[in-house]
Design a protein around this nucleic acid. Structure first.
Lengths: 346, 346
DNA sequence: CTGAAAGCGCTAACAC
DNA sequence: GTGTTAGCGCTTTCAG
């Protein structure tokens, strides 16, 4: 701490135990606080000489503007809130990372909330988030309480929903139809000549939507569903290994299994190798998520690719556009492309 | 935009273009704003009847307290900042998740910043974070600019550093000595009878510290280092597969390789299987991180276990203790236990 | 281009 | 138990 703005000649120096603020800088530079504010926020409206003086004072005192106070005054917090179920899944990790980065480049700080898959207290979560007056919000999928949604609407800020496109949108929407993914995977496997199917899904509403899409499409195509198993979320490799063992009794004839995540699929394949089940001859496997694991393990795993990074970037771009004052448009509801990547396990 | 709060039946509703605030609630409940504040923050200092009236008004109006304004007044933002290099690595994902959860339970919201491994502008990052006046800070490892550290100290808030214990601590510290990890792995492999070693490390200061500890210990024990390779961060399975191919020419005799991450180790093993290298007879492999992958893949991989979740929880506990007013103590510098998990690849 | 006055929405501190 | 007053540190708005 350096002493400043306390000329002993003028009296007993009030001990400044507190942090440097805009008035300190103003006094040190011999200008009004408002001028300091302008130097920071709208530098082109200040003369070069004044700017230089103020900048020098800022550096000398180590002034870090209090954005909380500024935000209260300007009603712009320059913070955005993001709610995701997990960051343990690489798809969400990539999404959050891309979203944060894009937002930060535009001067926004992200408040992250990890909601988990279980049902917890939405109201409390939203209250704690919205109480910080974020300028915008990113939320994952649907399934929030009416009270929570009410708060969202009352907050009157741009909202982008990601991941699940089947819900009635609050505002903007980026995602895909999970049931449709399941149906397309069924069609894909059917086209490869499969007629006996199994489904391994995590206990999570989106995973179950994919499972439903898959099983319905199988039924419609006249295929046989020999096993459907629901596993606890989040998915693990271990659960996949267990899944394969459960499937073993049905493998007297060839079968194709759709796993609701690549982790599950990798577990299935690992256990299949241990048990000596030939892949893809006796067992075809399709995962979901396109983790590096599915590409680089041996054999490489057929899977559904998702583009978490792209989704995060797009979500950020949508919010930024709206924060910049642009009106909402239909284009703000987009379907993220997904595609089936055909590799060695089918 | 939907119109709301303007029911034509009840008459000319005062157009509430603004969000509900504490004075609105106070008027609706017939009390002073301060009383509303007390109902929210210190309910035991308000009579039950008043509390009921106020609660009713809060619910009726859908009041969400502005924590930004409250924070400015009380000088407590109830936010904490966290800086990690990535969340793509499960260790950090677990850490962030555990940290966030523990903090949220105590009423703190986490502002997350993902710094990346490259050198970016620390000063700007810290300024943007500290400008939001977090009550505490979690940062990963060392290597920040002097200016950034100066800001940190000036901010006078509790700081916990994680992950790398070798740096001179700013305040609290939770982590381990990466060089020591490397040395212990070398000793472990040596004890298993190995004499020829290789090191595959990501281009990241901590990974390189482990590599240095490993190679120095190998040299000291009179072992031979046949190959040391530095790969781009973050580590991938693909890089591990490449690494094994680079190692192939040296595998005329048995060799033990230490990989700076489990992803690398898994890649090495996958490619070893493809190339027909017997593990662990001709090639012993040790990873780092104890991902589920290393436990559940076949063969299960020997690795160093890290406890990201535990670290995150401990970091949160340390900060909360300090925020509760407890003094700093030596116990606030702890070494996170790591241990080598001996599995099928060594 | 610069400054002065008046809040932003809440709570600390002190009455009553 | 409850109300009043005076800010928190900044920016908006309006004058010069």
């Amino acid at each position: 701490m350096s002493e400043l703005a306390s000329d002993p000649a003028t009296g007993p120096a009030p001990v400044r135990s507190t942090v440097v603020k805009i008035t300190d800088v103003a006094i040190a530079a011999g200008v009004a606080p408002m001028t300091v504010s302008r130097v920071i926020n709208t530098p082109d409206r200040v003369s070069p000489e004044t700017t230089a003086k103020v900048r020098a004072a800022i550096d000398r005192l180590g002034y870090v503007p209090n954005l909380i106070a500024g935000g209260l005054s300007s009603r712009k917090s320059r913070m955005v809130a993001a709610i995701v179920p997990t960051i343990a899944h690489p798809m969400f990790a990539g999404l959050v990372q891309a979203f944060s980065e894009t937002m930060r480049e535009a001067g926004y700080q992200v408040m992250l909330s990890i909601s988990g898959y279980g049902d917890n207290d939405d109201d409390a979560l939203f209250r704690s988030l919205l109480g910080r007056r974020p300028d915008a919000l990113l939320i994952t999928g649907s399934g929030y309480s009416p009270g929570a949604l009410e708060m969202l609407i009352e907050a009157r800020i741009p909202v982008v929903e990601i991941w699940d496109i089947s819900s009635r949108p609050i505002d903007m929407l980026i995602g895909f139809d999970h049931a449709k993914v399941g149906a397309e995977v069924a069609a894909f496997l059917h086209a490869k000549g499969h007629n006996r199917f199994a489904m391994l899904a995590a206990m999570d509403s989106r995973a179950l939507a994919r499972a439903r899409g898959f099983t319905e499409a199988v039924a419609k195509a006249g295929g046989e569903l020999v096993l459907q198993q629901v596993l606890p979320a989040p998915s693990t490799i271990g659960a996949g290994r267990d899944g394969l063992r459960a499937l073993l009794p049905f493998l007297n004839e060839p079968c194709a299994v759709f796993c609701s995540s690549d982790m599950l699929a990798f577990g299935v394949l690992t256990e299949a190798r241990v048990q000596g089940v030939p892949v893809p001859q006796h067992l075809a496997v399709c995962g979901f998520g396109n983790l590096e694991l599915s590409e680089m393990s041996e054999p490489p795993i057929t899977t559904v690719s998702l583009e978490g990074v792209e989704t995060g970037r797009t979500a950020a771009a949508f919010l930024l556009r709206r924060l910049a004052g642009e009106d909402r448009r239909d284009a703000d509801r987009v379907q993220v492309p997904f595609r089936i990547i055909d590799r060695a396990t089918t």
